[in-house]
């Protein structure tokens, strides 16, 4: 009945299997130590955050007043011509939504290609393990690919966007490249984990028949790993779309750019329309991705 987000579980790793014939060691004090350390960290974090330089928090009644005013602005209570009664605004937002989807598809596609090209290098067993060339060459390829994935993954999309607009002209392509750069790291890491946990039987059989390394990759690894990779890719498409609004904010494309302009010009009902379109788009992509994932199964 439930639709477990297996991607989230993949990130978190599999649940540890109980070791047969061995009682689980019970270490209750470790749990308590972890809880106490965790609580202390949370308190310290709040103290640090609240001591940071910033404007003071407005008093509660003012917050309520501001929230109500903001909600009213978004709904266009005092606006004689709210954007959602205007066909022109809808067609503008529709065009931007298409741009945003194009940006996310392009980013996911580029990231998929990048991950496909580097995933074998990042896999342990295909470079320095059972099926790899081993030696200095194997290690060099392995560490380089792993390093590439860690670096690209560690830098958030928004920071990539800040760097990309220095070199590419602002627009959909710059946004797609920024999104793809982060996503290569995420997909590469997930893909390397998949490649390392493949069923080794077929690979060994192929090698026993005299298959070279390329044949092993093409006929042994790829058919086994590709469905799982495509599933991850489709999961990440939703994440990419979600992020494309903030990347577009910086690279000047799609719904994000419209949000930036509408916020700056205080066109509140346009802001509401952009946000509504954005949420609907995320839901639609969520649905499309789950339908496509069914095809991959």
């Amino acid at each position: 009945m439930s639709t477990t987000t297996s991607l989230e579980q993949a990130h978190a790793g599999p649940a540890p299997a109980p070791v047969p014939g061995r009682r689980r060691r019970r270490t209750p004090w470790r749990g308590w130590v972890a809880a106490v350390v965790g609580a202390a960290l949370v308190v310290a974090a709040w103290a640090t955050v609240l001591s940071a330089e910033a404007s003071p928090l407005p008093p509660l009644p003012e917050i309520a007043e501001r929230a109500a005013g903001f909600a009213g602005d978004l709904l266009g209570v005092a606006d004689p011509t709210p954007a959602y009664r205007d066909a022109g605004s809808w067609s503008r937002v529709g065009g931007l939504a298409v741009d945003t989807v194009v940006m996310s598809v392009l980013a996911t596609g580029l990231a998929g290609l990048g991950a496909l090209a580097t995933v074998a290098g990042a896999s342990r067993s295909l470079t320095v393990g059972e099926f790899g060339p081993g030696g200095p060459l194997g290690w060099a390829v392995h560490l380089l690919s792993r390093g590439l994935h860690t670096v690209t993954r560690s830098v958030p999309e928004v920071v990539w966007a800040l760097l990309v607009v220095f070199t590419l002209q602002p627009g959909v392509l710059a946004g797609a490249v920024a999104l793809a750069l982060h996503e290569v790291g995420v997909l590469g890491r997930l893909g390397a984990d998949v490649a390392d946990s493949l069923d080794r039987g077929p690979l060994r059989a192929l090698r026993a028949t005299g298959a070279g390394r390329t044949a092993l990759l093409l006929y042994g690894v790829l058919p086994q790993a590709l469905p799982q990779l495509v599933t991850f890719l489709l999961y990440r498409w939703e994440v990419v779309l979600r992020a494309s609004i903030v990347v577009g904010f910086i690279t000047g494309a799609g719904l994000g750019f419209a949000l930036r302009l509408d916020l700056a010009f205080r066109r509140w009902t346009d802001v509401a329309l952009v946000l509504l379109t954005y949420v609907l788009l995320v839901w639609a992509v969520d649905l499309a991705s789950s339908l496509l994932r069914r095809l991959a199964r």
Binding site: S6, Q9, A10, H11, G13, P14, R189, L190, D193, V194, D196, S197, L198, Q224, P227, Q228, F232, L295, A296, R297
Partner: peptide
């Protein structure tokens, strides 16, 4: 972080 949950794959050529 070791692995993703792997499901045995049975190809269905049409949908693929």
């Amino acid at each position: 972080m070791t692995s993703a949950v792997l499901v045995p794959v049975r190809p269905r050529p049409g949908s693929r």
